[in-house]
């Protein structure tokens, strides 16, 4: 099982869970499965075209999935998937 770390602003959609377990094989399927379990979370994870929202950073361990295989990045057992909101503005 891999662990998914939910950032504070999204915890109200996961019944205040900060860490969730997943047996999904890839990052994309883990996030899909999360949004099926917590439907209100979906629009904060995916855009209208079903892609991971551009203002979210997804890390597997220390690696940004943009530097690996995006949503197809494999989740090994005991790895940690962190959902990290982009904090920026003007």
């Amino acid at each position: 099982m891999a662990t998914v770390i939910i950032p504070t602003p999204l915890r109200k959609f996961t019944e205040n869970n900060a860490r969730l377990e997943t047996d999904a094989a890839t990052v994309g399927s883990a996030l899909q499965s999360l949004s099926e379990k917590y439907p209100d979370l979906r629009r904060h994870l995916f855009d209208d075209t079903g892609n991971i929202r551009p203002f979210l950073n997804i890390f597997v361990g220390e690696d940004d999935i943009r530097d690996r295989n995006q949503g197809d990045t494999l989740l090994e057992s005991n790895t940690v998937l962190s959902i990290v909101p982009a904090i920026a503005g003007g």
């Binding site: 950032p7 504070t8 602003p9 999204l10 915890r11 109200k12 904060h44 203002f55 909101p85 982009a86 904090i87 920026a88 503005g89 003007g90």
Partner: peptide, 8 residues
């Protein structure tokens, strides 16, 4: 600011 903002 609005486009990047998170809930909560």
């Amino acid at each position: 600011d609005l486009s990047v903002a998170m809930p909560y």
